[in-house]
Write a protein that binds this DNA or RNA. Structure first.
Lengths: 181, 181
DNA sequence: ACAATCAGACAGACCTGTCTGTATATATGC
DNA sequence: GCATATATACAGACAGGTCTGTCTGATTGT
């Protein structure tokens, strides 16, 4: 599973075949299929694991901001920028998976959708706790910036877009979720 | 080429094979390979064509805003939201391609990079002409929102993220490219 | 003994790219 | 106008590799 995780993230879901995962992990094919009946199941499990790991990490990091929702929002973007600057960063595994699997009913897409709900929940809760006007609209906008930090940093090959997203998020939070003009 | 365009966009680059394109287009394999020596060449051509078409469309649409740079920025997001609401919308072909081809030197990625440079140029030029403070930083932020409109609308299956991106862009433009606080 | 895993062969489908001979459209020369 | 040459496209077979998933018999761990 660890090998699949690395290969899928680094190279793409279609680009990595079962045989390569097996060769690199040392597992037997029958064992892999015993645990994951199809490749789609393996992919969904890979995404689920990524989702769970990211959630755990963010939950832990944000725990110190429980009573400071505005700073919590900024912290999310700080953590994100750190992630985007990591040596193995290759974009958002969820966005990447959605690009490769257009069908919203695909098992991978279900994991992606759930993950996005969770992220949006982070922002919505923080916006509410900060008593910002229109927390729902602001949450939506912050999710946009979250996405774009990941996508932009991937495409540009630097973490600069994540930094920019963080700055933009500050502007939006400062504006309090107002629809401009 | 038209068939390849539709299939690649709708289903993904790896998911569509040469034989399927041939079967659906009525062309002979030898003809296809006469025009495009490898599948990668075909993919790059597909993206190039998408890029050129989008540029032409945006250039035409924005021509009426030549002397109104602020409104031009908003118009970009309006056009984008229209696109995201189209029945055949399946995310950003360029972001999708980057997800499937991690190597920045891949032919597809070169087209993607050029396309992104062009988009950023649109925003930077408009920000300069509008005499906004920090046009470069603002352009970066607007590109982020542009990306996120596309990605978000794809993942959510509605054009609502594009609408939200437009609102956020207005906030950023109103703030004039300020780094918050 | 049983459960889990392994090594590795297999099946059938699909993939990219190569090749041959044929067909069609167009241009050129007489 | 007709014959010929050339350019372009076609039908389809082929090669070799890769893919996902199935299966068998053997091995290892508890």
């Amino acid at each position: 599973m660890q090998v699949a995780d690395e290969l899928f993230y680094a190279r793409g879901l279609h680009a990595v075949g079962i045989d390569e995962i097996i060769a690199k992990s040392g597992a037997a094919k029958a064992t892999l299929y015993a645990h994951f009946p199809t490749k789609d199941d393996l992919i969904a499990a890979y995404l689920q694991q990524r989702s769970a790991a990211w959630r755990d990490y963010l939950d832990t990091t944000l725990a110190t901001y429980t009573d400071r929702p505005r700073e919590r929002i900024d912290a999310i973007f700080r953590v994100l920028a750190d992630r985007c600057g990591a040596a193995d960063f290759r974009g958002c595994p969820f966005v990447n998976a959605a690009a490769e699997y257009p069908d919203p009913r695909h098992p991978a897409r279900l994991v992606v959708a759930a993950q996005r709900q969770w992220v949006r929940g982070l922002f919505r809760d923080a916006a509410r706790e900060a008593r910002l006007r229109q927390p729902e609209a602001l949450a939506d906008q912050l999710v946009l910036l979250y996405d774009s930090a990941l996508v932009g940093s991937h495409l540009m090959g630097t973490a600069k877009p994540a930094t920019r997203a963080r700055e933009a998020a500050r502007v939006l939070v400062a504006a309090g979720g107002t629809k401009s003009r």
